[in-house]
Structures are given as C-alpha cells and as structure tokens.
C-alpha cells in the first residue's frame, strides 16, 4: 500500500504519533474498528482532504448514522453528530438549512444510508441539498454481526443469508445519479490518493455529492466468505478494480468477485436548494421575500 506523505502547515503536537492527530479526538482512542477494517483508511483520506481543501475546520460539521461507519463522527475533531439509524441525511439537511455557512458532511455506512435511510438519500439528492455524502460500503451490516445489506452481492453468505444471498443488490452509484446527485464517484480503500482527491473535490463542490468507498470487513464479510483478511482484500481490490472515469453508472454494479469499476462517474452542475428557493420566492413574492435568517441573532 502506498505511503501517504502529508505536508503539514498546522502544528503537530510533539508527542503526536501520527500527523492526522489534530483532526481526531485523540482522547477517544483507541477506536472500535477491527484490524483490517477499511473505515480508518477512509478517515485518513478524509483528514487529507480537509487539509488539502484548506477548509475552516470550525465550519465543517460531520453527521453520522448508526453502525461501524456511524462512529466516524465521534472520532473527528469537528462539530460532530452521531444521530439515529438511517437519519443522518435528514439531520444534516436541517443543520445545513439552519446554518448554510456550515460545510456539512454525512459519513455513514451502506446499511444506514441505503436500507433504513434509503428514502432520505434519494430525496436529498432530488433536492440537490448541499451535503457531501461519504458511504463506506462494506457490503454488510457489520456492527450487528454481518447480516445481509441491500448492497450485499448475490451468492454471498451472511448471518441472515446462511445459504447465500439471492436478492439483487443496489448499484449505489446508479441510484445516486438517477436521484439527481451532482457528483458521484466510487473508490476502494486501496485507492487512498484518488479517494482523498475525490473528497477534496466534493468539499469544494456545491450540491449533493456522493462518494462510495468499497471497504473490507474482514471479521464478518471476507472471513465468512473465505475471501481472506484485510491484506487479501487489498490485493483483490488492486486486481479487480478498473478506473473508468465517466463510465455509465448503470454498468458499474458490483458482484461478489467480479470487476470493480472505480472513478468519477458524474460531475454536473444543477441548481442547489437555496438557489431554487430564492429564485422561486423572489419570482412569486418580489420584495416581500425575506431570505432565510434561521439562526436567531440574539438568542
């Protein structure tokens, strides 16, 4: 795996073990993730993206749902919200609408965002709500012990599909594009540089942006399916991945052991929620329209 070298314009504590420490709540370490899990890798990429985008960290908020990836919010040294299962996106919607100067990142897992929270995902994309959604897709419900998710490929064995999954899985990038996302990309935890760059891109892009990160769950997914450990999964990702920027998302469905198409598939400009709101209200109400001032100034 490639070394990531950080240029660090901020001060690293003298006793720091890792240059990303200023981005993390070190008083909460060690984290709960298993050896070989890819979530930590994505967090590293995220810190790199925050650094490179020169974001004002006081104005970045991170919102998670429930699950292993749902714990990311708790480790990020940002204003962070660990919400209820599936509801990170509507919480983030309220946060963003109340306080538009915030950069709101939703960081959650595939089960959280696409099973229990699937409805919220498509509606936020439809509205082109200015949210950056990062989905760590480990193809299973990891926190609860490796049950079938809406992303679990056919024939995979899971705790609730002991004889193999037979339901078709969601193709997340196709779903995101169809629902209206402004930006859609997919990487694996093998593609750390590309992932960090994508994350940086979405931090600079307006509108609803979606990044899917394929990530191993060695404890519950790979092992149960005799797919090896974390390192074996990295080898698999390296061998099976094919970068195809702009590929039609309909051709990017994932299978158990087939090709993994990665890259940036969609990058388009659609008017955002506030733009549309302001245009419509100005057209209808003219000077009577008062632009939203939701945060109470003196209370």
């Amino acid at each position: 795996m490639n070394e990531t070298t950080l240029e660090v314009p901020y001060e690293i504590p003298v006793d720091a073990h890792n240059p990303v420490e200023p981005f993390l709540r070190m008083d909460r370490m060690p984290h709960i993730w298993c050896p070989g899990c890819g979530i930590g890798t994505t967090v590293n990429c995220f810190t790199r993206a925050l650094l490179d985008s020169k974001a004002d960290l006081d104005k970045v908020a991170i919102v998670s749902g429930i699950g292993c990836t749902g714990r990311v919010a708790g480790y990020a040294s940002l204003d962070s919200f660990h919400t209820t299962h599936g509801r990170a996106i509507p919480f983030a919607t309220g946060l963003k609408l109340a306080n538009p100067e915030l950069q709101v990142v939703v960081y959650s897992g595939d089960g959280d965002l696409f099973a229990i929270g699937g409805n919220h995902f498509i509606h936020a994309a439809r509205r082109n709500m200015d949210l950056k959604v990062i989905c760590v897709n480990n193809l299973t419900y990891a926190m609860t012990g490796g049950q079938t998710a809406p992303t679990t490929p056919s024939h995979v064995i899971s705790a609730t599909s002991p004889y193999g999954v037979f339901e078709p899985a969601f193709n997340l990038v196709a779903l995101a594009e169809a629902a209206g996302a402004s930006y859609v990309a997919r990487w694996t935890t093998y593609h750390v540089k590309q992932l960090a760059r994508s994350m940086e891109e979405v931090l600079k892009k307006k509108g609803f942006c979606f990044i899917e990160v394929l990530s191993p769950c060695p404890t519950l997914y790979q092992r149960r399916n005799k797919m090896g450990d974390g390192l074996d999964t990295m080898k698999f990702y390296k061998q099976a991945s094919k970068v195809r920027h702009g590929a039609p998302t309909s051709e990017c469905a994932l299978t158990k052991s087939g090709e993994i198409v990665v890259g940036k598939f969609v990058d388009r400009d659609r008017p955002g929620y506030f733009e549309l709101l302001n245009a419509q209200m100005t057209e209808t109400l003219g000077e009577r329209y008062a632009e939203p001032e939701v945060v109470c100034g003196n209370c």
Partner: peptide, 27 residues
Amino acid sequence: TVGGIFIQMEDELAASIAIQGAVWGGA
C-alpha cells in the same frame, strides 16, 4: 416574508430529526 425555512420532508422520521439538525445549527 418573515425569513426562515419550511421544508416538507419525505416522512415524519425525517421531519422530526431535521428539526434537531436545525436546532444544533442555531434555530
């Protein structure tokens, strides 16, 4: 005309958590 946001959400689950996001945003 007062200056604020009403959003019709996709269901009650969304509505009841969106307001809490707004509260932590300062509303």
